[in-house]
Structures are given as structure tokens and as C-alpha cells.
């Protein structure tokens, strides 16, 4: 794509190479969870099933994107000494809106996520991106950065959730309209429910439902990512 943006008069909603990079960078090289180590708290707690993890990923993406946008718009008016409080108020307001919407549209999931929706406020990704990016960049770029980081976070969340739910419960998307049982004696695609079928022998691995499994999976994901991308290796 040709670079259409002129240096002096950049259009507000430009979508060039730099903007695309803002979206794709957090997915691998600068992933919020495995590289920046931000937002682990909620990442681990909601990943025992895919559906809540998916909802959580959407909620976090919305909050990061819009808090980045609003903080970036306000950045010239925020005094440095009270910026933490201002940022927290912006985030807390957005999270309250997300919480109320979720409560209205999908009450069972709201119940399941319980305090972890509120904990998006102290999710380090949101605060970290505000400090590191939105306070120093224009609104549109900050917005894209927020979406990119939300997606990078969501990607890890969903990978971990798929592994945990598939091996822990044998199903995917449990609790949602498209629930499907993939392995185990009661799998959906089996015509005769006997052990002779492909994965009918599988017994659920209860370790995967435990919190500790999320730790192991993220540790292994970091291991895989760093052995493919050697510049991320911790030298200290």
C-alpha cells in the first residue's frame, strides 16, 4: 500500500503501515501476557471454559480501546500529579458500563465471571497501556493500540481456555448456544456411544480444571514463543 499520509497534514483516521503494526505487534512480539507480563490476574482465573474467556477478552478489548481513546483525548488537560486518579476514574467508569451491559445481556456469564469483571479496573494492561502509550500519542493511534493489546490478551486467553476445556471437560464453548462435546464417551458426533469410537475412551483430566493448570500452560506457551523468537529470551 502506498504511503498516502503527508507528514505535515496527517489525516485523523489514517490506516498505514504504522497503524497496522500497532494492531499486530501485541499478537506476538509484544504480547501483553507473555512478553509485557501485564494482566495475568484475570487471564488465569477465567480460562477454565472457553465461553467466559471469550466474553472476558471482548470486555477487556473494549475497555483498553476506549480508555486509551479517552485518556489520549484528555492527555493535555491532565496534571501530572493526579494522572493516576484521573486514569482510574476513566477506567472505572468504562468497566461499570461494561458490567451493567453484561448484566443486562447475559446474566449467567455475568454470574460466572463475578469479581473478575470488576478486576479489569486493576488489570495492569489497561493502566500499563495508558501510561506507556495513550499519555504520549494521538487518540486514533491510542485507540488502535488498545484494540491490538486487547486482542493479544484475548488470543492467549482463548488458547489457554481451549486447552483447558478440551482436556478438562472434553467439550468446547460449554454454556453457550454452540456448545459441543468433542472427546469423551458422550461426544456429540458419535453415533453409537460406545468405547469403540475414536476418542470415546477419553477420561476427563481433572488437573486441567485446577488453577495450577493455567500456570503450566502459560509457562509452556512462553517457552514455545521464546524458543521460536530468541530475541525475547531473558538474559539476566
Amino acid at each position: 500500500m502506498a504511503e498516502t499520509a503527508v507528514k505535515e497534514k496527517e489525516p485523523i483516521l489514517a490506516f498505514g503501515k504504522k497503524e497496522r503494526q500497532l494492531l499486530t505487534d501485541p499478537l506476538n512480539d509484544n504480547n501483553p501476557i507473555t512478553v509485557q507480563v501485564l494482566g495475568i490476574c484475570s487471564a488465569l482465573a477465567v480460562t477454565s471454559l472457553v465461553y467466559p474467556a471469550f466474553v472476558m477478552a471482548i470486555a477487556v478489548t473494549l475497555v483498553t480501546a476506549f480508555s486509551n481513546l479517552f485518556t489520549s483525548m484528555l492527555r493535555q488537560f491532565i496534571p501530572k500529579s493526579v494522572r493516576m486518579i484521573v486514569q482510574l476514574v476513566v477506567i472505572a467508569t468504562l468497566v461499570t458500563i461494561v458490567e451493567l451491559m453484561l448484566k443486562y445481556f447475559n446474566y449467567p456469564i455475568y454470574k460466572q465471571l463475578s469479581v473478575y469483571i470488576g478486576l479489569i479496573i486493576t488489570n495492569c494492561i489497561v493502566m500499563g497501556r495508558l501510561e506507556a502509550f495513550a499519555m504520549a500519542n494521538k487518540p486514533w493511534r491510542s485507540f488502535l493500540d488498545g484494540i491490538g493489546n486487547g486482542l493479544g490478551y484475548g488470543a492467549i486467553l482463548i488458547i489457554v481456555a481451549i486447552i483447558r476445556e478440551l482436556f478438562g471437560k472434553g467439550s468446547l464453548f460449554a454454556g453457550s448456544p454452540i456448545e459441543i462435546k468433542i472427546i469423551g464417551p458422550t461426544a456429540d458426533y458419535l453415533i453409537n456411544t460406545t468405547q469403540s469410537t475414536l476418542f470415546g475412551w477419553y477420561t476427563n483430566n481433572n488437573l486441567m480444571v485446577l488453577p495450577a493448570a493455567a500456570m503450566f500452560i502459560i509457562g509452556i506457551l512462553i517457552w514455545i514463543q521464546r524458543s521460536r523468537n530468541t530475541k525475547l529470551i531473558d538474559v539476566s
Partner: peptide, 23 residues
């Protein structure tokens, strides 16, 4: 420790093991 697992990766796995111990 394998180089790619050094630091963060190992900390995650250790926390998982500690979680099991605390159980």
C-alpha cells in the same frame, strides 16, 4: 534451566507447582 524458559516461564511453572502444594 533451558534458556527459553528462564525467568518468566519458569516463574509460571513454579507458581503452578506451588498452587498444587497449597492445595
Amino acid at each position: 534451566v533451558p534458556p527459553a524458559l528462564r525467568g518468566l516461564g519458569m516463574a509460571f511453572i513454579l507458581t503452578g507447582l506451588m498452587g498444587i502444594a497449597f492445595m
